[in-house]
Design a protein around this nucleic acid. Structure first.
Lengths: 337, 337
DNA sequence: TTTATTTACTTAACCGATTAAGTAACACGG
DNA sequence: CCGTGTTACTTAATCGGTTAAGTAAATAAA
């Protein structure tokens, strides 16, 4: 059972391969009758075109890459859903690359994109990422950053209102009576981390609260190390409110509180950036800043496909900020927003 | 800045393209000196081979496909992690396809694999899947089923001890005093669903408990519909214990209990098949059957790569059952296992 | 010294589709 | 009846690597 090629169809029908190709691509050069004969035989022999032959010739792969730090985070899982939905609709294929929060791995992945394997890239960078390699990529190919963007690089970006969200979270804690608020940050470099930190600091300032010397704890990618880090920070600073800026850190807070026997929200009010669908069933239910993950993925993909369709689309100038929402639950004391 | 090709390297070095290709592939036919010159120039010009040209010629894509119903389920998210880890190590690329629990979409996806786009497939089927199309796929390509396998098809399979796990879950509920136990099933067709149902029934039998006429509720893929379905089932059957056989259904139980104002575990003990890392922080913490998702992904990928490496590997006969574990928490009353 | 073998290349076909350029047959306006 | 279009194809080049087959020169074996 050899693979069916265009040449086999051509031989069977006593036509040239060119005719077959054109017939399959609905070229106007082909008569309706011939077209039908070709389609009929193709269906009969179950012909499926070789994508690599076509990609090679057309210099287009109908494939996009999604580069993310990990999948086991509901934000990314939902974002992939959004991306894939758009891609499937457009007949594109999705290559997934996990950088595992490792800048080195990310570089290796980016390098591969020089090959023409993908027509465009959707990326959410690692906590360690610098602009290296990204500028080149953006120059070479349509790229859309989503969520974890790289500030220094001029490119299309889909983000949430990070500073505003952190500001709201902080205000919410203050409204609930917190005076010694800490922020758990995933990265010193990540612009969304810094924006969240800024929103946090601005809110403190606006409410005449001092910024504790150790208000911001920079966490690592290692959960055991984080656990220790948080424990120490909690004990040393005696926080009464904490903002966890990632989902992983949110659950880490619960773990550490359990270990320290701190009660939430009595001893520590907690608000987390998280898309966990089970946030409302946590004990206590977690007040969250929830990002529109699916929509962000969809928006990023949509932008990318617009650029892929018309190459005079000014992709690099596109910026979209999709608002997140604060959902007040029992891990904090303030009512509503 | 044109794309660097092997031909360009050849011209610059006054060599043939064949020599360049062989040099880059460390062929013994090439002198060490020439090889170094080629590698040096390749590095200097930042040459990246075109994967489609090479795939076309070699009839191998260095790409595998992962077909799953969705990503927003921690089992699949973790499984992807395992798969990707192995793939990255082997220098393979991973195409993700989401069937969205839709058999039709799945068929379309499978059809695409006839094209040679991927060298192998890892698949976890939808709740509606029948053998159609799968047999052909297995005949044509290395395929490994994981978790949601298709019984009728003879192929490599990585599963958990589904019947045993359900048996244990049922026994656990009985030990906690339950007498009217219900099981929430995701599918009538899925073999893992049926095995779980079997384990459930066997446990009831072994403990001299009658099988309620509506003991098993077959759920849909629509969460709103499920909500209604569960509500009705709960009210009509007055369960005192429930086994949710998927993660989605587990959280659905929490939602319905909240809506009905049933207390867990006082009014209803709950045990769920779930890989949620936050299960222990749910309110109440959820007793789970936890599958080794990462390991299953890894095992499936490892098996596939073994088949890709040596084509006389009897892939279709491979079966691996990786045990799951019951983690007793507060949504059930029995101590430990 | 002659023949065989090895080394280090080159030539050219090939993978399977696409497409620019060419062509034969026929229609049509003048 | 001629020239111009149009239709419906074919021919052949092309995308960028890979590889079977060929070759010239150097080396080893007889």
């Amino acid at each position: 059972m050899e693979n069916v090629t265009i040449r086999m169809l051509a031989e069977r029908l006593q036509l040239s391969t060119a005719t077959i190709s054109k017939a399959l691509n609905n070229s106007h050069e082909i008569s309706e009758e011939t077209r039908q004969r070709v389609l009929a035989l193709a269906a009969e022999l179950n012909y499926v075109p070789n994508p690599y032959a076509s990609s090679l010739r057309k210099k287009a792969s109908n494939t996009i890459a999604v580069v993310i730090p990990e999948v086991a985070d509901s934000f990314f899982a939902e974002a992939i859903n959004g991306i894939e939905a758009v891609a499937q609709e457009k007949g594109y294929h999705v290559l997934i690359y996990l950088s595992h929060e490792n800048c080195q791995k990310e570089q290796t992945i980016l390098k591969d994109f020089q090959s023409g394997r993908v027509d465009g890239v959707l990326i959410s960078v690692t906590t360690e990422t610098t602009a290296t390699g990204l500028e080149q990529l953006v120059r070479d190919k349509p790229v859309v950053f989503f969520d974890r963007v790289c500030e220094e690089v001029k490119a299309a970006k889909i983000t949430t209102d990070d500073a505003a969200a952190a500001y709201r979270a902080t205000t919410h804690l203050i409204a609930g009576g917190c005076r010694r608020i800490g922020l758990l940050s995933a990265s010193r470099q990540l612009s969304i981390s810094n924006k969240r930190a800024e929103g946090f600091q601005q809110a403190l300032l606006d409410h005449q609260l001092p910024l504790l010397p150790n208000a911001i704890t920079y966490c690592t990618n290692d959960s055991a190390a984080n656990h220790q880090l948080l424990k120490t920070a909690f004990l040393e600073n005696d926080y009464d409110g904490i903002i966890a800026t990632t989902e992983k850190l949110s659950t880490a807070v619960y773990e550490v509180c359990e270990a320290l026997q701190w009660r939430i929200p009595e001893d520590l009010q907690v608000i987390g950036f998280s898309n966990l669908s089970t946030a409302r069933f946590l004990h206590p239910s977690l007040t969250t800043i929830t990002q529109p993950a699916f929509e962000m993925g969809k928006a990023a993909a949509t932008l990318l496909f617009r650029a892929l369709k018309s190459n005079n689309f000014p992709l690099q100038q596109q910026q979209e900020v999709i608002p997140s929402s604060l959902i007040a639950r029992n891990s904090t004391l303030a009512k509503d927003k």
